[in-house]
Design a protein around this nucleic acid. Structure first.
Length: 485
RNA sequence: GUCCCCAUCGUCCAGAGGCCUAGGACGUGGCCCUUUCAAGGCUAAAACACGGGUUCGAAUCCCGUUGGGGACGCCA
């Protein structure tokens, strides 16, 4: 049984990089009928907050990534908050010391800081100098007697450490570059390395899929697995997501929190599709993939090794494509919150005027890239008043069209049924009679009724606007058009 | 500074020694469709970082250089 986890630290919101890591884990679990576990790594009590946990949970839910075990639903390996598993880490650290894999370190953070800075000033890096590893029994006793705080450091053996990475292949580190890292702080809080390994062992993780930035942490963790007598899981380190300037994605690149995307009008299925293809490829040419298809095709082996730049334009395109694939009814439901927010929603849109509303949505669907655009685009048909855009008026509501528009208004007033085809025939017939180019009358009518120069097909618009509103606006528009002198 | 990862169009990917005159997608330009704007269709420009090997043959394998990224915490 495959078991994978997403283990965010609640020190910030769910950013797109984390979201993609979660997605890869989720896809992998779903692909193989495995289990996806959510675990909160809140051992940094200073920076962790409950608010961030719920933000992360919201982000995952929005993307439709559901977990089989986690803080809210529990599971056979509960609890899923590291802050509630401290005993296990302390016990593990004690075991390490008892078996000689780790030792107590009495160095103060200040002295370490000093040594580190001195080394840096000298132009090199610094690894812990093992001061406390070589203490004699007497020296240890002396420090213990003073009650000095002690941390637990792992004793890194000689040699080298390697592991198999499903995206990078075999990776090897000389142990000489790995320092004797702290596993248990002097305040008895575990460090990341200890808690992940203890939990991943206890939670029986078979695969660890995480960001590339953890590659250099991995040998330390492999050493811990060895010390605990466990064999490490399979690792898959996925490349980072960068901003357009190839720097690590940050706020100045725009929206980096997943939860900003619903507010910007993006569909979760589009986000999932887009993120899945950032750094991973199913191999073929297909780019627009539904959740089920992604699950069917997903493989860790298809993840590329290099970093990927987040391309907002492509996200827009993917989003647009997914919007086009929605049924009008579905789109209509997703649009409702937006209309409510703008005060353009009418309860009738859910009942007596449902068909009308869905038809309206369908008419605008092809031109929607993002959900937020609808209220603006369809505004003229949703609001009682029209806003005449000066440029559109100047260009299309020319004085010589005063009379034709007036005639058109009276013809429309008598038209029955008031539907697209008859509307178009009527307008074209009138244009012919008056020896006008149909286009000029069409444009003038569009501006008259919508106030804008651009819209979906005019006659479908007119039909949806209805006889009354069309007549009213045509009359109103005529006041903007001075008759020719 | 040390270690690790990466290297194909501007961007995301395909390519696992001959199928490559390097393919697709976004974006960009042009054309078509057309009542406008979109959408859609067609089309164009656009890349194997460099240098050495290995091989009959290299985008694909090896080495080096360069470039980019990551990590070097009693953060995760």
């Amino acid at each position: 049984m495959i078991r994978v986890r997403f283990a965010p630290s609640p020190t910030g919101y769910l950013h797109v990089g984390g979201a993609r890591t979660a997605l890869f884990n989720w896809l992998y679990a779903r692909r193989h009928g495995g289990l996806f576990v959510l675990r909160i790594e809140d051992t940094d009590t200073q920076r962790s907050s409950w608010e961030m946990v719920s933000g992360i949970v919201d982000g995952l839910r929005w993307m439709g990534l559901d977990w089989d075990e986690g803080p809210d639903i529990g599971g056979p390996h509960a609890p899923y908050f590291q802050s509630q598993r401290l005993d296990q880490y302390r016990e593990a650290a004690a075991r390490l010391v008892a078996q000689g894999s780790a030792y107590y370190c009495y160095c103060t953070p200040e002295s370490l800081q000093q040594k580190r800075q001195a080394a840096e000033a000298a132009g090199g890096g610094w690894l812990y100098d093992r001061t406390c590893c070589t203490l004699t029994a007497g020296e240890v006793a002396a420090r213990e007697a003073t009650g000095a705080p002690r941390a637990v450091r792992f004793k890194v053996p000689r040699g080298s450490t390697s592991f198999i990475d499903l995206v990078h292949g075999r990776i090897e580190f000389p142990n000489a570059v790995i320092e004797d890292f702290v596993v248990l702080r002097s305040d008895l809080q575990p460090t990341y390395h200890l808690s992940v390994v203890v939990d991943d062992i206890e939670m029986a993780m078979t695969h660890v899929v995480r960001g590339d930035d953890h590659i250099s942490n991995t040998p330390k963790q492999v050493l811990l697995y060895d010390a605990f007598g466990s064999s490490p899981p399979a690792f898959a380190h996925v490349p980072l997501i960068l901003g357009t300037d190839k720097k690590r994605l940050s706020k100045r690149h725009g929206a980096t929190s997943v939860m900003e995307y619903p507010r910007l009008g993006y569909l979760p299925e589009a986000m999932v599709n887009f993120l899945a293809l950032l750094g991973w490829s199913p191999g073929g040419d297909e780019e627009l993939l539904a959740r089920d298809e992604l699950i069917q095709m997903f493989a860790l082996e298809g993840i590329s090794g290099g970093n990927a730049v987040f391309n907002p334009e492509k996200l827009d395109w993917v989003n647009q494509q997914h919007i086009q694939r929605l049924t009008p009814e579905d789109l209509a439901s997703r649009l409702e919150p937006w209309l409510r927010d703008k005060g353009l929603w009418s309860e009738h849109f859910g009942s007596s005027r449902r068909d009308w509303f869905v038809a309206l949505v369908q008419l605008f669907q092809p031109r929607l890239k993002r959900l937020d655009q609808f209220t603006h685009e369809a505004g003229p048909l949703l609001r009682d008043d029209v806003i005449y855009e000066a440029q559109a008026v100047a260009k299309h509501l020319r004085p010589e069209l005063h009379e034709p528009l007036s005639l058109l208004a009276s013809k429309f007033a008598m038209l029955d049924p008031f539907t697209a085809q008859p509307l178009e025939m009527t307008l074209r017939a009138l244009a012919e009679t008056l020896q006008l180019k149909p286009a000029s009358l069409i444009h003038a009518t569009r501006v008259a009724v919508t106030g804008r120069a651009a819209s979906p097909g005019l006659f479908e618009m007119l039909e949806l606007a209805g006889r009354e509103r069309v007549g009213e606006r045509l009359r109103k528009a005529l006041t903007h058009v001075a008759p020719p002198a």
